[in-house]
Amino acid sequence: MRQHCTLKIGPRIFRIGSDWAAPVRQLRALYADYPMPDDLIAHFTVRLEAARWWRHFLRPSVHINGDHMLPGALPLPLAQGLLAAEMGMNLQLALGERHFLLLHAASAERNGKVLILTGESGSGKSTLAALLGEHGWRLLGDEFVLIDPTTGHAWPFPRPVSLKNASIAVLDAIVPPARFGPLLTGTPKGDIRHLVPNAAALSGMDSPAAPALILFPRFGVPRDVRTMGISEVFIRLTQASTNYVALGEAGFGALTRLVTATPARAIDYPDTMTGLALVEELWSALA
């Protein structure tokens, strides 16, 4: 590939190659404060490629390729090349990871214990995790939690937080502008802007910790807290994992250990600040 860069995010290293300079330039700027990889041999490769050679120039559109592919994935316009790179990294990890049990979840750590927030897109987990990261917690990540089958610990994966639509303004009000990537408009998920995690999150990216609470948030509904049976948590987390089946017995062991050792609650909240207060309240009740 003409352009490339290598990025370390938690325990994983990505090599991103591109037919164009712009997405790699934007990636380098977004990841400027990340530690340099200690090894240039990447776990995963992402390739941003033109569909046809003339599409380098004419209505350039980015195909996301790599070691693992999803058939039928649509290309993105070059103006959203940064988003394509981030989506490519997600895809490679989601389909290719064979050591850690992956949960589609956000997570944050305080006092050596990890809070896991898992839910579908729109549940508010990214926004809550980003806010926790600015209010005394160490942000571990907003997209994936990596559970180590050997120790049961949650590893950080502190990619830039993908803020969408109204969440952008919520964080923009409290975080310096230098920590934001460019505003990407008109994406399949509306407006997106990446928020670089703070120094505590980046310097702690090699420090896993034990999970202590699992929350299943739901945004935009009246405040409610519901206890959950262990088997319900187990079923929902198998659905939230992209590689549970691929890991075989190691995945079974990691997930049953997590759900039998960690309390879980389903939480409903009408707005972000109520959600944040609810998380703090439930966390305090654990102590």
Binding site: G229, F234, E249, T256
Partner: peptide, 19 residues
């Protein structure tokens, strides 16, 4: 391999890889 959860027990069947 069997792990009791609550009213349900999770079983991992090694031959099929199914839970």
């Amino acid at each position: 391999r069997a792990v009791p959860l609550d009213a349900l027990t999770a079983l991992y069947h090694r031959r099929s890889g199914q839970t």
